[in-house]
Simulated scan of single mutants.
Amino acid sequence: MIVTQLRLDLCAHMLHEGSMKERELYAPIKAHFEAQGYEVKGEVGAADVMARRGSEPAVIIELKLAFSLTVFHQALERLKLVDDVYIAVLRPEGKAGMKRLKANVTLCRRLGLGLLTVRPRDLFVEQHCAPGPYRPRKNLRKAKGIIKAFDRLEGDPNEGGATRHGLVTGYRQDALKCATYLAHTGPEKGAIVAKATGVPSATRLMRNNVYGWFEKVETGVYALTPAGRKGLEDWS
């Protein structure tokens, strides 16, 4: 126990000095699993760290200072040997680091891997997820939304992989229908535009005027603005 604490103190000092090596993660990870009753050994065969507790299946932990594709490849290879595999890395810092950590927690869950981080300032080990099968909880609202967006689009107006700026959406297609109708008829009641264009929400769409294409000329009656005529040219 005294030897383990000395190792932890040395690791913390080296990290503070900015000279920590990958192997310095071993002491805090070893202490973490020993506190749970595991016997822990380093560099066992292809494994960075291996832990066993009685007759339970063995656990393998792969060490890296930061997330990389390599550590995920190595961890997946270890799944051919045991069921429970962890990745252990230094805990990233800052807003960007937390965003990266969150994304990698999700990735580990998807791959059936566990994830541990070691906090730089005090070598505190935190478990973010455990190894095992993972089924993400579906976001039913977003799932319905994307199906609705698919069904609302007429044809296939966008190339996959294009930037979000300038994409044709179902909403824009509805606005174009209303604008096209008004360009031919002049000012018209929203209810008539809705019936003629097949856009049930035409009145609300023209009232909200997201693109600046419409103007209200009297109660319930809308006309096309110069911006609307230009929009028809740009999106024809």
Rank of each mutant, 00 (worst) to 15 (best):
I61E: 00
R119K: 06
C129T: 13
A103T: 11
G45W: 15
R109Q: 12
A191Q: 11
V168M: 15
A175V: 15
L6P: 07
A35F: 04
I87V: 08
R204F: 15
R23G: 08
L6S: 04
R7K: 10
K189F: 14
E93C: 02
L81M: 10
Q5V: 09
P200M: 10
M1K: 03
G112W: 07
G190V: 15
A130H: 10
L167V: 12
E159N: 06
I61H: 00
Q5R: 11
R91M: 05
Q5T: 07
F150T: 06
D122A: 06
Y171G: 01
V85Q: 03
K21G: 11
T225G: 07
H16D: 03
G186I: 08
L107F: 07
A58C: 08
L25P: 01
G45S: 11
P131V: 09
A31R: 04
L232N: 09
A51I: 04
A143V: 14
K189Q: 13
E233H: 02
L111R: 09
L10W: 02
F72N: 02
Q173Y: 08
Q127L: 06
A88T: 00
S68W: 14
Y86D: 00
F150W: 09
T4C: 07
C178H: 12
A58L: 09
V82N: 05
E43I: 04
T117A: 04
V193H: 08
N158Q: 11
K142N: 01
D151Y: 12
R110P: 00
A12Y: 03
R91C: 10
G170F: 15
E218P: 10
L25W: 02
E22W: 15
L232T: 09
G190C: 14
A149G: 10
E218S: 15
A149E: 08
V71S: 03
Y222E: 06
P57Y: 05
G94R: 01
R207G: 14
G212V: 15
G114Y: 04
N158C: 13
K102W: 02
H13V: 13
I29D: 00
G186Q: 06
P57W: 06
P120I: 12
V40N: 03
P120V: 10
I61P: 01
R141I: 14
Y211Q: 14
R100E: 11
Y26Q: 06
V82Y: 08
V59E: 03
K95R: 00
I146N: 04
L69T: 09
P226W: 08
E233Q: 06
G37I: 03
G145Y: 08
F72I: 05
P57G: 07
V89C: 07
M1S: 04
P57F: 07
V199K: 13
A179Q: 08
Q74K: 11
P28S: 06
A194R: 08
A27W: 13
T180L: 12
L25D: 00
T180R: 13
V105R: 00
W213N: 14
A143R: 14
L116Q: 01
E154A: 07
